[in-house]
Simulated scan of single mutants.
Amino acid sequence: MPTKPSVLFVCVHNAGRSQMAAAFLAHLAGDRVEVRSAGSAPADQVNPAVVEAMGEAGIDLAHARPKVLTTDAVHASDVVVTMGCGDACPVFPGKRYLDWSLADPAGQDVRGVRPIRDEIERHVRDLLTELGVETEGVETGGVETETEPRA
């Protein structure tokens, strides 16, 4: 039986993009993928606008906390997805690296975070397809870009 893939999402503060990506991956893949997120300079808390936007998608980040990036987390991951952490992200041979160019939700209200959230969900769904992980039957409310909260 093949081992389940492990994915690490990394951004600077681990308070927005990487938290959303990890939450989507965990929600969509369940226990079929091992999920981690971390930041090169973690913030004290997850961005409140990110928590609100993810809540609209049916995912609760209220108790999520930013974590520091460690070399152990990178070593333990099959895929490392970077999102603006620059040179602070360690690179190790044999790891698959993806760099997702995404707007930073820092300083944005929930209306500004929604399109970022939806783009991250699309990227995560594409990654799961590449990894061969089924998401059938798991919904988050869609990925349409919108400016109003989901019903």
Results as ranks from 00 to 15, higher is better:
residue 62 A to G: 09
residue 58 G to M: 14
residue 142 G to D: 05
residue 122 R to K: 08
residue 100 W to H: 03
residue 100 W to Q: 02
residue 65 R to F: 03
residue 105 P to T: 11
residue 37 S to P: 04
residue 125 R to G: 12
residue 30 G to T: 09
residue 126 D to Y: 02
residue 59 I to Y: 04
residue 65 R to L: 13
residue 73 A to D: 15
residue 129 T to M: 06
residue 90 P to V: 13
residue 89 C to K: 02
residue 77 S to H: 06
residue 41 A to T: 12
residue 59 I to F: 05
residue 51 V to R: 06
residue 127 L to H: 02
residue 49 A to P: 07
residue 135 T to K: 03
residue 134 E to D: 15
residue 150 R to L: 15
residue 146 E to V: 11
residue 136 E to D: 05
residue 102 L to Q: 12
residue 130 E to V: 08
residue 58 G to W: 09
residue 148 E to P: 01
residue 132 G to Y: 00
residue 33 V to P: 05
residue 136 E to Q: 10
residue 137 G to H: 03
residue 91 V to H: 06
residue 133 V to F: 15
residue 43 A to C: 04
residue 26 A to Q: 12
residue 94 G to N: 15
residue 6 S to T: 15
residue 100 W to P: 01
residue 126 D to K: 06
residue 128 L to N: 00
residue 43 A to G: 04
residue 96 R to I: 10
residue 43 A to V: 03
residue 124 V to I: 11
residue 88 A to L: 09
residue 49 A to K: 02
residue 99 D to M: 13
residue 72 D to M: 12
residue 138 V to R: 14
residue 78 D to I: 06
residue 63 H to C: 01
residue 73 A to F: 15
residue 116 I to P: 01
residue 52 E to L: 02
residue 71 T to V: 15
residue 3 T to S: 15
residue 111 R to P: 01
residue 67 K to E: 05
residue 151 A to F: 04
residue 122 R to F: 04
residue 13 H to F: 01
residue 151 A to Y: 03
residue 95 K to C: 09
residue 73 A to R: 14
residue 42 P to I: 14
residue 67 K to D: 02
residue 106 A to P: 04
residue 37 S to C: 06
residue 41 A to E: 11
residue 45 Q to T: 12
residue 61 L to I: 14
residue 102 L to G: 13
residue 79 V to N: 13
residue 31 D to G: 09
residue 127 L to T: 05
residue 147 T to V: 13
residue 109 D to I: 08
residue 72 D to Q: 13
residue 128 L to G: 00
